[in-house]
Write a protein that binds this DNA or RNA. Structure first.
Lengths: 323, 323
DNA sequence: CTGTTAGCGCTTTCAA
DNA sequence: TTGAAAGCGCTAACAG
């Protein structure tokens, strides 16, 4: 049982003062001789700086709060991995809180992070509300919203409208005429509205809407409603939704794409494995995460940051829409 | 810009001392009258206790360090979600560090968490080494290893050997005679050795081994080596590995399971979507995560904890091994 | 370049 | 039941 070793222990062993050790640890305004002695003392004692003590003093201690809808989803995992990659390089650590797709919990988390005094906050948001806007005015912790946009906020997101158009164009070119679009709740403006509107701009056939949540299961259960519209193509607002439909169609022995074509958004790896492979818009969530991290780092050193819509996605035309 | 509100602000507003507020926040040795006043003052000011200050003083502040191999993997995501669910309920927060499947980084992370003074550590480990064992003797922070076992450690993991046997039995019953087993590095004892040995205990045919890493891509690239063994069944140590093979076989127009059967371990959702659906051992990683969290909570209140092998898995027989 | 000194915001004896 | 005072481990002036 090693006793927790503090900066004082190191100082004592090195025969210098605590501040000298502290200087060694931080800026490094220190003689080579002492630096060497302290270095040795640190390795000998196994000292690591106490995060909390340092933090309490400096109010800047390399801690980022991250709010994420769910931790066990592909897009969240990728985004977090991207954020993490950059943050780790810069020796930042992060505390992750899940909002469980609930706007109220998202707000609570932002509150808490502000009061706990993290250096900055990244919110992978489920939607911008009035309440969130006024919350952001109250607090001064640098904060970036990922995945949703609003002119009064720092945000970074994929251009969902453009992504919607891209898929719409493809299906238009395939000459589909009657589409069922499985959409998510419109409180998610990015997916529920922007993505969908982009699609409608480019696709000229009929479009019928059915509402689902984000889950494979929910889409599967609501799939029977689809058929009464006699569509020639079905679009899921996410790949999971599309694949829920997939399962249903296959069980009913409806051939994809011969009888009905299917397409989605996301580019989840499973879309490649399904049979037939799913046509989808493949988003680079990891890069989005990296860029979010870069942006928060900029904000942290006082540089200005420009909210932006990213084009990190591409159309993957696969067999589910083409013979 | 709301100024950060401290316990002093609340005390001032409530007309009591800091210690009274602190007591209200913690044990609650306080008059009803003051409790009410303080409660109001807290909501009025929007006060939230500063984590770091509290932590510095108490050395117990609801912070758990989690080491995870990768954040963007299905099993990690599920396990983290399970851990998170329980920890959140108990008002704990967690700092997640990725080891990138690297044992050295895992050790560094454990070091760092110990010195930063987290209350407890959960390590989703890539393998137990001598160095880790001696590390654990040095430090006193309650720590649980997930996914790997060793008699000298607190651990909780799935019974990989039993899982291996379960799949071996099935393939034996299918009367396969010549198997290629795509295994991962043996430094991952749970998957590389235990799972494999369980399989060998139950399966009586020939088994040839090929080494891969955990990735879909790697398995895909090494798939050509498989065919020279002319197997009637291929087993991947994880579903990703099996699916990498899947892709190769399909490209070569080899029929599954008619020409060669395929099976995996994991029960990743994608195994259900693939065509044919993949026979696999489905692990309940989320439950594993929950149980890990429960265990760490026990340890934290001083209760004894018994390391254990869990049976949260089942064999899913699907079309990739049966006509 | 270094040591002394004074806190960061909170909890926790100790008296009252 | 409450307040005053001390101090967790660290950093940051300040003087030297």
């Amino acid at each position: 049982m090693v006793k927790k070793v503090t900066i004082s222990d190191v100082a004592k062993l090195a025969g210098v003062s605590k501040s000298t050790v502290s200087r060694y640890l931080n800026q490094g305004y220190i003689s080579d001789k002492n630096a060497a002695i302290i270095k040795k003392a640190i390795t000998d004692t196994g000292f690591k700086s106490n995060f909390f003590a340092a933090r309490l003093k400096t109010k800047f201690n390399k801690l980022i709060g991250i709010v994420v809808p769910r931790i066990d989803s592909y897009s969240a995992g990728q985004t977090l991995a991207g954020i993490n990659e950059i943050l780790t390089q810069e020796q930042y650590q992060s505390i992750i809180v899940t909002s469980e797709l609930d706007s109220t919990k998202e707000i609570q988390a932002i509150h808490q992070f502000n009061q706990q005094g993290v250096d900055a906050i990244i919110v992978i948001s489920v939607g911008i509300t009035q309440e969130k806007l006024s919350l952001m005015q109250q607090y001064s912790t640098p904060t970036i919203f990922v995945g949703q946009q609003h002119p009064d906020l720092n945000y970074i997101k994929l251009n969902d409208e453009k992504a919607g158009m891209l898929l719409g164009q493809h299906l238009e070119q395939c000459q589909f005429k009657n589409c069922v679009y499985l959409n998510v709740n419109k409180s998610d403006k990015a997916i529920g509205i922007e993505r969908c509107q982009g699609f409608l701009q480019a696709f000229n056939g009929n479009v019928h809407f059915i509402n689902t949540d984000f889950s494979f299961e929910h889409a599967y259960l609501h799939a029977p409603e689809i058929l009464k519209f006699k569509p020639d193509v079905i679009v899921g607002a996410t790949d999971n939704i599309a694949l829920g439909v997939f399962k249903y169609l296959q069980e009913k022995n409806i051939k994809i794409p011969n009888d009905i074509a299917v397409a989605g958004f996301g580019g989840y790896p499973v879309s490649e494995i399904s049979s037939p492979a799913l046509t989808t818009i493949s988003f680079n969530f990891k890069l989005l995460g990296k860029n979010a991290a870069f942006s928060i780092l900029k904000l942290l050193v006082g540089k200005t940051f420009h909210s932006c819509l990213e084009d990190n996605f591409k159309l993957l035309i696969r067999s589910s829409t083409q013979l």
